[in-house]
Design a protein around this nucleic acid. Structure first.
Length: 874
RNA sequence: GGGAGCAUAGCUCAGCUGGGAGAGCGCUUGCCUUACAAGCAAGAUGUCACAGGUUCGAGUCCUGUUGUUCCCACCA
């Protein structure tokens, strides 16, 4: 036996992982003999380091995958990384800046070279970190969203959608980040409430017959105004519709138009219309055929349309314009105002709504079937409430802006003919214009939204657009595991993309988990500095400890708090398991153990086998429901409370006894249960179970053994219940010791009065060992005892412990009265229940008989206790 | 403005389809019992947020209230 006394995960985890990987255990065999089971990993960003969120996400997937693998499925967990277009580009731009360089300085090719180098460096890092967690991914199939396979899928998908007229190019309102200098999708904008002002500005009539006051939160866009709008029903302004106003700070005149979009009640009821800088105004502009006047450049600086303000950044311009308006007496008033301002989810800059020429995916037709599959429950979210979140988003979806003014990503496969303006969209680089035949073609400069490629992930990684063996066998995948924060970004887009390109949903189940928060419940983030590095935890406590801690006792979809106290508990649990294995191994060294079934098991054996069988049922039920936290908790209880605290202790009676056969049998059952425990726990804590398995197992790896399933052979319900009374006796004696301060090392005698004499006699060894009893005398009547004793009554059993002079009648009477009080409360509860007509009429029969039985027992008990008190009081 | 989650022991949280309130940590007491002091044994601790309702029976289902967290929308 070579297990050291303390569980030291660092001494074996890496070697075990390497062995699994070298042996190819993670790679499934594609065969018709087995059913496929496939999970694709949510690809982590190559910019990223492993954080607690990844640790949770990967642990859940690994538990599912390892469980299925042990159940005999051809199991594929497909790993990979995401190029994370904007996130990575931001980092590389930042690095260039440190060197005093800009994107333009290095040029596109050199920039991409740097980016790929970055990917090689950091992409490896996160993969190594996933391995440290024990993730049983098939690394031979590792994918990257920009590798050849995935890039081909992206081009193919784009071209298909374009030819189906589901992708178009057009000038639309988009969110623009002036810092990243690119368009963003709606999902990439975060809104936060900010304290600002409503500026009330007077726009004079051209004939100087007064003015119209408008309220705005964005005075700097005034130079882009092309109209003032009022509600056609608004009596205040009915007269002035069609008249013209002087646009302050300019020599322009603009019309007053009528549009239903204007709320009569809000502000002054008159709105400045700036179609180039506001999504609603843009719509108004379309309806009224207004001009687009863009007053800002792509970096958020005022352009030549802004006259003397040109060159100022948007915030300076705002201040200057307000000051100038005030000087001219056109500023009516300023009111404090709180409103939501959009920020770039990458760099946190204030985004600009901007009319710009971009590529879009038409969403209406794609959303329809994606809504249907969830409504019809062909795809279910776990927990179910997230399907509403999804449906709500899908139902209100707008066209998806997919072009990004970036370099790092999939370049849009569109070429423009400089001769005839023809647009050619093709997966292969065209040599000449399909319309005019010339060769003057320029490829679109932009790349695609990173989520466009992630949307294809469940099939691009399996070989799409080719119908490969992998794609045929593993698509659709079985379950997707991800956090609720990327339902919109990713899950939704995979669903409509899968349906569109594959003609089939990408997965029937989506397991949603929460966020990992810090001990105070705050979201972990790099900027807040409250992040916990999982690798550091693995170094200190081991991967198993982290895995077990992070996924037990949590409810599906709920956020979890990380704290070091909890980590220690998990470590202690695994140490407990470790030592229980040491106990079994130590004692069975050089012992030839008989097989279970070759001998008749004793009462304690039947008890633990029944308990084990129940644990197996509970674990498999909960794993099936993906209630992984509950499954882990059940195992924890079974292993610690039942196996270690009771069964191992019970076995010591035989192990340290003289009966060699009994000793061997006990050890055989111990070993049998231990092996099952290791298998049950393996998906949760793969390393420690494998390490112990190397000492006890007959197969080379526990990974490929069969997962335990419920065995009706062990459904010893009756034996289980009977043995519980033996445990009760032991507990009662221990309790008396504690109350009377009798040292555990002091042996005691015991009188037992019971109808179950034969059964108890058969199991005396356990009572003797665990309650430290030297001799037991069975009596038929209390009168047979001549010594001073302390008595306890259990269900059908009376115990008397002679304690000589320590026994204090006074103390004993107090104790008994307390006991009587409790029993009486129970009696009245039962009576009340059984006297309720409705209960007797409607409650299930077994419940009624159970309650009747309880009442009977408690009445007897009460009688006994009371007579003992009166006897003592004499 | 719309929607969702949460509210259970001092703290952090479990509690499945309604049928006598649980864990870990902390606390009290006693134990170095030849697997484990990262341990063992015995304990104490709860108007299950509040108010109604359904039911023979509600922590669990329904309605409302309060507090709290989050998501979506974005009327200048």
């Amino acid at each position: 036996m070579s297990l050291p006394k303390h569980f030291d995960p660092a001494s074996f985890e890496n070697a075990i992982y390497k062995n699994w990987e070298d042996k190819g255990y993670f790679t499934p065999e594609i065969t018709t003999d087995k059913s496929p089971f496939c999970v694709v990993i949510p690809p982590p960003n190559i910019t990223g380091q492993l954080h607690m969120g990844h640790a949770l996400n990967s642990t859940l997937q690994d538990i599912i995958i390892r469980h299925k693998r042990m159940q005999g499925f051809a199991t594929l967990w497909l790993p990979g990384t995401d190029h994370a277009s904007i996130a990575t580009e931001t980092k590389i731009v930042g690095k260039l800046k440190e060197e005093g360089l800009s994107k333009a300085d290095v040029g596109r090719d050199a920039f991409l070279e740097r980016a790929f180098k970055w990917k090689d460096q950091y992409g490896r890092l996160i993969v190594d970190q996933l391995k440290r967690l024990g993730s049983s991914c098939d690394w031979s199939r590792e994918a990257f969203t920009m590798d050849e396979k995935c890039s081909k899928a992206v081009k193919d998908a784009f071209v298909r959608l374009y030819h189906k007229k589901m992708i178009y190019r057009g000038k639309r309102m988009i969110n623009w980040c002036p810092c990243c200098k690119t368009a963003l999708s709606d999902a990439e904008v975060d809104y936060s409430a900010e304290n600002s002002y409503l500026w009330y500005i007077n726009y004079p009539f051209v004939d100087d017959s007064g003015f119209v006051t408008v309220a705005t939160t964005r005075p700097e866009t005034i130079l882009g105004d092309v109209a003032v709008a009022v509600n056609p029903e608004d009596p205040k302004y009915k007269e002035v519709i069609g008249k013209h106003l002087k646009l302050p700070l300019t020599s322009k005149t603009i019309p007053i138009i009528a549009d239903n979009y204007v709320e009569i009640e809000f502000g002054t009821g008159a709105v400045k219309i700036t179609p180039a800088h506001d999504p609603n105004d843009f719509e108004v502009g379309l309806r009224h055929k207004l001009q687009l006047v863009n007053v800002m450049d792509d970096a958020g600086y005022m352009n030549n349309n802004a006259n003397e303000y040109a060159g100022m950044n948007r915030f300076e311009a705002r201040e200057k314009i307000v000051t100038d308006l005030e000087k001219q007496g056109l500023l009516e008033k300023i009111e404090p105002y709180t409103h939501n301002v959009g920020h770039c989810s990458r760099c946190d800059s204030v985004v600009e709504p901007r009319a710009s020429l971009q590529w879009f995916v038409k969403m209406q037709a794609l959303a329809k079937p994606a809504i249907r599959v969830v409504k019809e429950r062909k795809i279910v979210f776990i927990p179910d409430r997230f399907s509403n979140v999804y449906l709500n988003w899908m139902n209100n979806i707008k066209d998806w802006c997919i072009s990004r003014q970036l370099w790092w990503g999939h370049r849009i496969p569109a070429w423009y003919c400089t001769e005839c303006n023809n647009i050619i969209v093709d997966a292969n680089t065209p040599t000449h214009c399909s319309k005019c035949g010339c060769t003057n073609l320029i490829q679109d400069e932009d790349v695609l939204d990173t989520w466009f490629s992630s949307a294809l992930w469940p099939f691009s990684t399996l070989g799409y657009p080719e119908m490969t063996a992998d794609l045929k066998y593993f698509y659709p995948t079985n379950v997707l595991v991800t956090g609720y924060d990327i339902i919109f970004f990713w899950v939704a887009r995979m669903i409509f993309s899968g349906i569109e390109h594959m003609g089939e949903i990408p997965f029937p189940e989506v397991l949603i988990h929460g966020l990992v928060r810090d001990a105070d419940g705050k979201k972990m983030s790099k900027s807040a500095g409250n992040g916990v590095d999982p690798i550091e935890i693995i170094d200190r406590f081991g991967a198993d400890t982290l895995r077990f801690n992070i996924c037990t006792g949590m409810a599906p979809g709920a956020d979890i708090r990380y704290s070091e106290e909890k980590i220690e508990n998990s470590r202690n649990f695994l140490n407990k398991l470790w030592n229980s294995a040491r106990f079994v191994l130590m004692n069975s060294e050089n012992v030839k153990l008989p097989e279970i079934g070759e001998f008749s098991t004793n009462s304690a054996d039947k008890w633990i086998l029944y308990k084990m069988n129940s644990a197996i049922s509970e674990v498999s039920i909960n794993l099936k429901k993906y209630d992984i936290g509950l499954a882990g908790l059940k195992l924890y209880d079974f292993i610690w409370s039942d196996f270690c605290d009771w069964y191992i202790e019970l076995c010591k009676a035989n192990i340290y006894g003289n009966d060699v056969k009994a000793r061997e049998r006990s050890l055989a059952v111990l070993m049998f249960v231990l092996k099952n425990i290791l298998k049950l726990l393996h998906p949760f804590t793969p390393f420690i179970t494998e390490r112990i398995w190397q000492e006890v197992g007959e197969n080379r790896t526990i990974m490929l053994t069969k997962y335990p399933s419920n065995n009706s052979k062990f459904s010893y319900l009756k034996d289980f219940k009977r043995f519980e009374s033996i445990k009760e006796i032991i507990r009662a004696v221990r309790n008396i010791r504690a109350e009377y301060d009798v040292a555990p090392s002091k042996t005691l005698s015991l009188f037992i009065l019971s109808n179950e004499k034969i059964y108890i006699k058969k199991n005396l060894q356990f009572i003797n060992k665990l309650a430290n009893i030297l001799n037991v005398t069975f009596i038929a009547d209390k009168g047979e005892i001549t010594e001073k004793t302390v008595g306890v009554s259990l269900d059908g059993i009376e115990l008397y412990v002679p304690l000589g002079e320590i026994v204090s009648f006074e103390k004993e009477i107090t104790r008994l009265n307390k006991e009587i009080q409790k029993v009486k409360e129970e009696i009245s509860r039962s009576e009340k229940l059984l006297n309720t007509q409705g209960f007797v009429a409607k409650a299930p029969k077994n419940l009624i008989s159970q309650e009747t039985e309880k009442l009977k027992i408690n009445r007897e008990l009460c009688f006994k206790l009371e007579s003992r008190v009166s006897e003592m009081s004499k």
